[in-house]
Amino acid sequence: MFCIIALIVFSILGIFSATHRALALEALDCVFRRVTLRPCNTGFKERAKNKILAKLLERSEMAARLFNKHFELLSWIFFILMITSTFWVVKGGYNFYLYGSCNGLNQSGFCAFDPNGENNKVTQLNNLGICSPEQQSEKNLTLNGVDLSTFPKINTDSKNTIVFIGCYECDYSRKAYPEIRELAKKEKANLIFAHYPAITNTSYLSTLNYCAYNKNPEQFWTLNDYLFAADKEKLFDQIFIDQALAQFDFNAAEINQCVNSAETKAATGAQFQELKKTGLYGTPTIFINGQVFVGPKPYRVYRSALKKFIFF
């Protein structure tokens, strides 16, 4: 048992160190002998055991005695622990590749590949009165009963649908948006964009968004890309907004008039109520063919979901 553990451990360490490579070879010889039903007479186990024992003896006589007495049992325990941890490491790596988190889709918690949890971060909604963890669960997220017909959309004849709910001024939405746009472009997927003003003073951008799309659906997407790429501070600058509208062939005066109309306010208010039905608790929240992704995931995650790779 000890030789198997040593082989695995020293093989990994051997990638970085020649000394451990030699030990790995010795362990391999030992394992080979055991597998071929021959005694492992290389003395490897004894030497390795006694090296550990000597280190322990320098620190604690009792620990050394227990280690020596229960060496086989400890070997088994460590073997099981190693197999278990190896399983979790592999699972973590698999999860990270597919979901952007070692712990599974939308699951926070420590992940060595994403130590700061960047792939799960969201801009919390502070205008919905949602506080409890139960409410802030991706299990409650749904598109069932949500009317998205009035939101901007592209490639409507595609069988794949991506719903992006984000806000212009939110960092994580700004991080995820380009990935989603690129994916929608490459895969010609139906993309529905919903601006959710997670930060309250950006509500006016919902009305701008509504008006721009209704006036010119094709140019809307260019304007949208521009707003997501622009400095956040400028999103509050009316001159900047007007210049942006003009730049993309919108009539700023006409749009501003639309923005201020009661009809627009009623429509965007209705949109806001529809979005609340999704149960979202932060932005970005992205639905890809019904599968929900909370927080900005790496591009491969979105692509895997769209391509229906294993487990999606």
Binding site: G43, E46, R47, K49, N50, K51, L53, A54, K55, L57, E58
Partner: peptide
């Protein structure tokens, strides 16, 4: 008691 173990431990410690 294995004499090899005694020898290795004396060396290591």
């Amino acid at each position: 008691i294995d004499s090899h173990q005694i020898a290795i431990l004396l060396d290591e410690t």
